[in-house]
Simulated scan of single mutants.
Amino acid sequence: MRPSDLELEIVEATTASHPIMQEKHGEIQVSTFAKKNKDQMDQFVSIEHADLVVEDLTAFEELAGHITSELKKLLTISKGKICIVGLGNHWMTADALGPRIIQKLQQQYTFLQQERVILLQPGVSLQSGMETTHYVKAIVESMKPSVVLAFDSLRAATQSRLCRFVQMTNAGIQPGSGILSKRQELHFRTLGVPVIAIGVPTVVSTLDVTHQQLDYALQHFLNRLEAKGTKNPLASVAYWQAEDKDLSSLAHVFGEWARMSTEERKQFIFENAGHTDRIVTPTNIHEWIERWSDLFVSVLLDVLAQPAPS
């Protein structure tokens, strides 16, 4: 199974050399990097707000500004039609980001350049009986847009990034890749036009959550031991922080478990769970989907709105 839909997490988990440029804007971090894919360079932009909460409208406004700026950089085509595709299953809340964006754009359609914008909600193959790529390709061949913007819900490998992270790329997207339901990719190779994919992680696997919480507990325990000699260990800042520390010093308490690498602990949990895994999502995912879909509609109206009449 692909560990994550977030390319930044995959790069962080490998030893491959991909220079990552990072900029900090208050609480928002913007990361950009490129990966060679056959004969082209794929560009990736990640925008993250680690402390984002669904009620923080000010933070969402700040995110919208950064997303608009980065999208304009990726959207280099200034002429021709733009096909906006909302991928996902609107009956499944965690997977409904793409469909909700299209539904809300349809309500705002008069504010768009209608002769230039194509809105498409293909659903999933279980609903339509067609591969999503075949559906989109048929529209592309008929309507001949210059570029496709594809929005989708993604899978994260890190629980803390759920609904607090945006990925944008010109590398296209492979629907369902994060949950072992791989479909044909939406890409220049399959559609014949550039594809910009934008997504927010809304699900994470129980395997990832379990091993991260256990790692956190071990780090927490180690911090407590290190703070034991302080005047008030419970008040120590280090006691409450989870850091990437060497846990081998805990081997006398936790045995071989403390000597394992993160991946070895993850594999151990997987094997002892009967090689099963589940996908989970935040309990307030409906609120997150509504907030993010509102944000993306605002961004698209800004990027694609009709010029004001003179």
Rank of each mutant, 00 (worst) to 15 (best):
Tyr135Thr: 08
Met168Phe: 11
Glu226Pro: 00
Asn37Ser: 09
Thr32Pro: 01
Gln40Cys: 04
Arg224Val: 02
Ala34Arg: 12
Ser69Glu: 14
Leu97Trp: 01
Lys73Gln: 10
Ala59Gln: 06
His49Arg: 05
Tyr135Ala: 03
Leu8Lys: 01
Gly123Glu: 02
Leu63Gln: 06
Val124Ala: 03
Ile102Tyr: 08
Gln114Pro: 04
Leu162Lys: 00
Asp246Ala: 10
Leu87Trp: 00
Ala251Tyr: 08
Glu243Arg: 15
Cys83Phe: 03
Lys79Cys: 04
Asn284Gln: 07
Ser248Gly: 06
Leu126Tyr: 07
Ser69Asp: 11
Thr93Lys: 02
Val148Gly: 03
Ile279Asp: 03
Tyr109Ala: 12
Phe221Met: 11
Gly129Leu: 09
Trp91Leu: 11
Val297Thr: 14
Gln103Lys: 13
Phe268Leu: 15
Asp215Thr: 10
Leu247Glu: 07
Ala150Asp: 08
Glu70Ser: 12
Thr202Val: 01
Lys38Met: 11
Ala96Thr: 09
Ser249Leu: 12
Ala197Glu: 01
Glu48Val: 10
Phe270Asp: 05
Val166Cys: 04
Gln241Trp: 07
Lys104Arg: 15
Leu234Asp: 12
Gly98Leu: 05
Pro99Glu: 08
Lys245Asp: 11
Gln184Phe: 03
Gly172Arg: 01
Glu70Thr: 07
Thr262Asp: 14
Leu74Thr: 02
Ala251Gln: 15
Gln107Trp: 08
Phe270Ser: 05
Arg161Met: 00
Thr14Gln: 12
Gln159Lys: 05
Lys104Ile: 05
Asn89Gln: 06
Ala13Glu: 10
Ser69Arg: 06
Val195Leu: 05
Val53Gly: 01
Val237Asn: 13
Ser125Val: 07
Lys137Asn: 15
Gly274Asn: 10
Leu214Pro: 03
Leu162Arg: 00
Ile28Tyr: 02
Thr15Met: 05
Ala96Asp: 07
His25Arg: 13
Gly88Tyr: 02
Pro122Arg: 09
Leu225Val: 02
Asp42Met: 04
Gln267Phe: 10
Val209Met: 11
Leu180Tyr: 09
Asn89Ser: 10
Val297Asp: 08
Ile173Phe: 13
Ala227Gly: 02
Phe296Asp: 04
Ser146Met: 08
Phe221Glu: 12
Phe188Trp: 06
Ile77Leu: 12
Arg2His: 07
Ile289Phe: 05
Asp277Ile: 04
Phe270Pro: 00
Lys266Val: 00
Gly176Gln: 03
Ala305Leu: 06
Thr202Gln: 00
Asn272Ala: 02
Val11Met: 03
Arg155Leu: 04
Gln103Glu: 15
Pro122Glu: 08
Thr230Glu: 14
Leu180Val: 01
Val209Ile: 15
His211Gln: 14
Gln267Gly: 03
Leu301Ile: 02
Phe268Val: 04
Pro3Arg: 04
Glu115Phe: 02
Lys79Tyr: 05
Val148Arg: 05
Ala258Asn: 08
Pro175Arg: 02
Ser46Val: 03
Arg164Cys: 13
Phe268Lys: 13
Ala308Trp: 07
Val140Ile: 15
Leu52His: 01
Leu149Met: 12
Leu300Asp: 10
Ile101Met: 10
Val148Thr: 03
Glu226Asn: 15
Ser261Trp: 06
Asp277Leu: 05
Thr110Phe: 12
Ser142Arg: 15
Ala305His: 15
Asn37Asp: 14
Lys73Met: 09
Glu9Asp: 07
Ile28Met: 01
Lys231Val: 13
Leu119Glu: 11
His49Tyr: 09
Leu120Val: 13
Phe188Ile: 11
Glu27Arg: 14
Pro145Tyr: 06
